[in-house]
Computed example of a mutant assay.
Amino acid sequence: MFRQYTQSILTGMPANRLLALDVFRGLTITAMVLVNNPGSWSHVYAPLLHANWHGWTPTDLIFPFFVFIMGVSIAIVTQRLQAQGTRFAEVFSASLIRSLKLIGLGLFLALFFYNFRAADYSWIDQRLLQIRLPGVLQRLGVVFLLTTIIVYHWRLKGQLVWMLSLLIGYWLLLVFVPYPLPDGNMTQGMLAHGNSLVAYVDAQVFGAEHVYYRQATPYPFDPEGLLSTLPAMASALSGVMCGRALLATQWTLQQKAMRLLGVGLVLIALAYVWDLSLPINKALWTSSYVLLTTGMACVLLAALLWMLDIQGWTQWSAPFVVFGVNAIAFYMFSAILARLLMMLPVADTSAGNWLYQSLFQPLFGDKPGSLAYAMCFCALCYVAMHILYQRRIFLKV
């Protein structure tokens, strides 16, 4: 029965579409939802948490993988539009609309919360007037628009120059540009939590009430803040480079996979060399972090190409196809459901806490129960996404 189910999904894929790319997207968004929704944040296995500061965990690979995949998609779509002779004005208009939609969805999620358990809760004062302005979808929207502009105006060499300039320029900004501390003294080159050029810029532009790390000192900042969007664009451009390689007609699929693997391993090695002077850091999105995550993405995509599109081992991949082709819908559904479980009161706590404490924790224990909750949450989301897939409903922004 499972074989029939998977075949029904896989046979619906277009013949010329790379299965590896959809599965990569599906794996990435599934991992994002899994790590975002534990039963309890007090009981989470270390690999499912972000690194405390410098360094990385598997969780720190997820968001840049999504940015990388977006870059691959930009390369594929742009080549098709250029072949059709589509004018840049049309491309820019469509890209701007998509960017604004992503930003709007991100702001909607930032506002979608009400504390029904607090009688004195004021949504206007505690949510609207203190809205977190940056965010995951907001960053995707901005990076998508700017990367599309670069890709449409510059060819391969120009795109490579942009990518290197963003990485090296960001490194130079972090290390050499001075900024004032609250006491009036000037400093530079600091890469501490709340004490960096990134944090200073976020504090000046957004203010303490509108960023994720509101209590950081001396400056509140956001992991999806303004200045760190520059290297995130380099992550997207690295995906564009990968997309161009996948579109190349002079190489076989095996050659493409081997080249991706080789490039990925080289980038990982270079990342650790750069880490000696510029630490790998997700919250700052350092240039060494871009090299590491791009290298990891290339290695994983090469492995998926070999496994799925070359060897044909596809049966396991069907659920991730369902998630991958409707990634934005999956993300939005999971985020809204998670907020509803936090908002709805049950027995003097939230519905989500009640489920974990009364069912998952007693059955499985602290951390295993927290992970089981997250897995069941993903399974529930899958039911909804499968219904959309069957009805051929795909959320396009």
Score class of each variant (00 low, 15 high):
Thr11Leu: 03
Ala15Gln: 06
Arg25Gly: 13
Leu27Met: 15
Thr30Ser: 14
Val33Lys: 07
Val33His: 08
Leu34Pro: 13
Gly39Gln: 13
Tyr45Pro: 00
Trp53Val: 07
Trp56Cys: 04
Trp56Ser: 01
Thr57Gly: 00
Thr57Gln: 00
Pro58Thr: 03
Leu61Thr: 02
Ile62Cys: 07
Phe63Ile: 04
Phe65His: 07
Phe66Ile: 06
Ile69Tyr: 02
Met70Lys: 01
Val77Asp: 05
Thr78Ala: 13
Thr78Ile: 09
Leu81Gln: 15
Ala83His: 07
Ala89Thr: 09
Glu90Gln: 04
Phe92Glu: 07
Ser93Tyr: 06
Ser93Trp: 06
Ala94Asp: 03
Ile97Phe: 02
Arg98His: 12
Leu107Arg: 09
Phe108Met: 15
Phe108Tyr: 08
Phe108Ile: 14
Leu111His: 01
Phe112Gly: 08
Arg117Asp: 03
Leu128Gly: 00
Pro134His: 05
Leu140Tyr: 01
Val143Tyr: 11
Leu145Trp: 05
Ile150Met: 10
Trp154Val: 04
Leu156Gln: 14
Lys157Ile: 13
Ser165Arg: 01
Tyr170Phe: 15
Phe176Met: 06
Val177Arg: 06
Pro178Arg: 13
Leu181Tyr: 07
Pro182Gln: 12
Pro182Glu: 13
Met186Ser: 14
Gln188Arg: 15
His193Glu: 10
Asn195Arg: 12
Ser196Ala: 12
Ser196Leu: 09
Val198Ala: 14
Gln204His: 15
Val205Glu: 03
Val211Trp: 10
Gln215Cys: 11
Leu227Lys: 00
Thr229Trp: 03
Leu230His: 04
Met233Phe: 06
Ser235Ile: 14
Met241Gly: 03
Met241Ile: 00
Cys242Arg: 05
Gly243Ala: 09
Ala245Asp: 00
Trp251Lys: 01
Met258Phe: 10
Leu261Cys: 03
Leu267Gln: 06
Leu270Gly: 12
Thr286Trp: 07
Ser288Gln: 10
Val290Phe: 11
Gly295Leu: 11
Val299Cys: 00
Ala302Ile: 09
Leu305Arg: 10
Trp306Gln: 15
Ile310Lys: 12
Gln311Ile: 11
Gln315Thr: 07
Gln315Pro: 04
Ala318Phe: 06
Pro319Phe: 03
Val322Thr: 05
Ala327Tyr: 03
Ile328Val: 15
Ala329Ile: 09
Phe333Gly: 11
Ser334Trp: 13
Ala335Thr: 11
Thr349Pro: 01
Leu359Arg: 04
Leu359Ala: 03
Phe360Glu: 04
Pro362Thr: 01
Phe364Gln: 13
Pro368Gly: 00
Ala372Tyr: 09
Tyr373Ile: 08
Leu388Ser: 15
Leu388Cys: 14
Arg391Leu: 14
Arg392Cys: 08
Val397Tyr: 11
